[in-house]
Design a protein around this nucleic acid. Structure first.
Lengths: 337, 337
DNA sequence: GTGAAAGCGCTAACAA
DNA sequence: TTGTTAGCGCTTTCAC
């Protein structure tokens, strides 16, 4: 049988209340008594039951994390950032996936209303997560990670009104464009991400700005699946129709890798004939042929920031009113030196 | 204020016990009463408090998962497998990392003895996890995922005695060797993983067997960090000393990618001059130049299997006495056709 | 400084 | 079939 607070109290010849005081460092205990209690605790190896403490205190010291799925390249980084911060503060991390569709959401909702955690981190939530608004109104602490914010600080991401952490999508894309212009590229092709996402808009606009500002036409856009095959197909088609371009900017690295494939097959040299820049800086980016210049998205730092904000709120601090923006960084490699 | 079982009972004009019966489908309730109770539940949006249920029942419907860290390529797959199974059975997943060293372990241990979860999944535990033995003796349900088992079914992984899920490390390496032999390679170089791991032994032996069986000498071994840079350095050194070899087998894909780098730099053609086979089949493997032949390790399936075994045990079934082996699969790509 | 007692929200005998 | 009564293990007034 587990050793309970009552066992400790009996052996230390005090009341449960006193043991509780010692446990929670409520100074109002006689030094000698405290020592005695601590000895018994050590001797019995007593650990408070998380569930009982939670029930009595009304807080579980646990944070829920809802992610779309676990298999995309940067999710591990986000989670690691979250996990590090949570653990450092003694919080547990209850992980939920939306991988199994509607059923997943139902289960998740039950967990939420079952008070299984004190706060919630929403990673890359798909556009209209209906249960969200309910949560928000009920005052449940929620932080959105990587909302589709443009990163210019005015909080117009996909879930306005929620405290959130985002990256500088717009500025990152602008940096890519500026880099291309600085190296003499004037006719880029852009392969954007899903049109529904705020970050796609932000990256599109951020990329266009320097070009139009320099008097160049709006960059040519091409649709493609956000996969390696998608990028490859798109560029192959473009080459077939003899479209002229001297550079490609994709909204994700996987697509960029496909672009490199297509160019390679068509014997178009990278970077001399065409420069390529991706977005995200996933592991693969450093390993393509040639290595990919890309806009790094600070996944881990975003996870850390989100967890920090949530924990601060649980500790009584108000949520920040504007999104916290973690800056992107242009990683220059051989595909666009 | 949250709506509690007492609120529901009052509004349905029954006792809390009856509500509880309806909640848990204890058939012994009058149909009419049950309907009335359900109506009130629906009307109030009542959800049982997870903590209170856990305390009363002595079970939390939550499983702990301890992973070394979240950033390695296959961890997401393992977790996705675990998560899918757990969610499908209504279990929560409490995630712990050992990323922050000793402190992590301490926190984790507290969670364990705090009864925060009903069972535990240990993913790739480092060799001697001291708290493990204590757990085991106390009868706490633990399943080890990817123990360093050789996969030949005799249960001699790094943590013998624990129920576990592993992959066919030995057979996978044998398949790689057989493939090389079948394509005329007789002088391989092997870059093994960390010597302390059981799977390194298993893969080493599995690879050697076909060669010695065919009358060839034991393959040449070269030490290297399990990173891309490690593989590159190792092969560069080997080339510098004019060591003759016609193929390379590495215990992980990252190292293999480094090997490809080194060969490319030295203008050694792959696969005509040297064939290369890796292990794991991480995303990168399909994207190297040339694409990497590798032994796929079924990460996600391992996660699913481990969760299934644990849940079965929590439901009353005994643990299997031998490790569950999910087979590897040789993925043939251009680096060793 | 310390203890008694009343919950936290639920389940599970035991009666009725 | 249903209600009553104890807990589960802890925190927290409120007295002393």
């Amino acid at each position: 049988m587990r050793v309970t607070i009552a066992d400790v109290a009996r052996r230390a010849r005090v009341s449960k209340a006193t043991v509780s005081r010692v446990l929670n460092n409520r100074g109002e205990v006689d030094a000698g008594t405290a020592v005695r209690v601590r000895e018994v605790i050590a001797a019995t190896g007593y650990t408070p039951s998380a569930g009982a403490v939670g029930l009595a205190r009304g807080r579980t010291q646990t944070v829920g994390v809802l992610v779309p799925h676990l298999t995309c390249p940067w999710m591990g980084d986000v989670l690691q950032g979250v996990s590090d911060v949570l653990e450092a503060h003694g919080y547990g991390l209850l992980l939920h996936t939306m991988n199994r569709g509607a059923d997943s959401v139902t289960r998740f909702t039950r967990h939420v209303s079952g008070n299984a955690f004190d706060g919630l981190l929403l990673v890359e939530p798909p556009d209209p997560l209906s249960c969200l608004t309910g949560l928000r109104e009920s005052g449940f602490p929620v932080v959105v990670v990587d909302d589709g914010d443009d990163g210019d600080g005015d909080g117009d991401g996909d879930h306005p009104g929620f405290p959130s952490v985002a990256t500088s999508n717009r500025a990152g894309a602008t940096a890519a464009a500026t880099h291309l212009l600085a190296t003499g590229r004037t006719r880029p092709v852009v392969i954007p991400g899903p049109a529904a996402l705020g970050r796609t808009r932000a990256r599109t606009e951020g990329f266009r700005t320097p070009f139009t500002a320099a008097g160049h036409p709006t960059p040519h856009h091409v649709e493609a699946d956000p996969t390696r095959a998608g990028g490859r197909t798109a560029i192959t088609a473009l080459l077939a129709e003899n479209h002229e371009f001297d550079s490609v900017f994709t909204h994700n690295d996987l697509t960029a890798a496909g672009v490199l494939d297509a160019l390679h097959e068509a014997h178009v040299d990278v970077p001399t004939q065409v420069a390529v820049i991706g977005f995200d800086d996933i592991d693969l980016a450093a390993h393509t042929q040639p290595p990919l210049t890309t806009v790094r998205r600070p996944s881990r730092e975003m996870g850390e920031a989100a967890a920090t904000i949530l924990l601060a709120n649980l500790a009584g601090a108000p949520f920040p009113t504007t999104p916290e923006i973690i800056p992107t960084e242009l990683i220059v490699r051989a595909s666009a030196p």
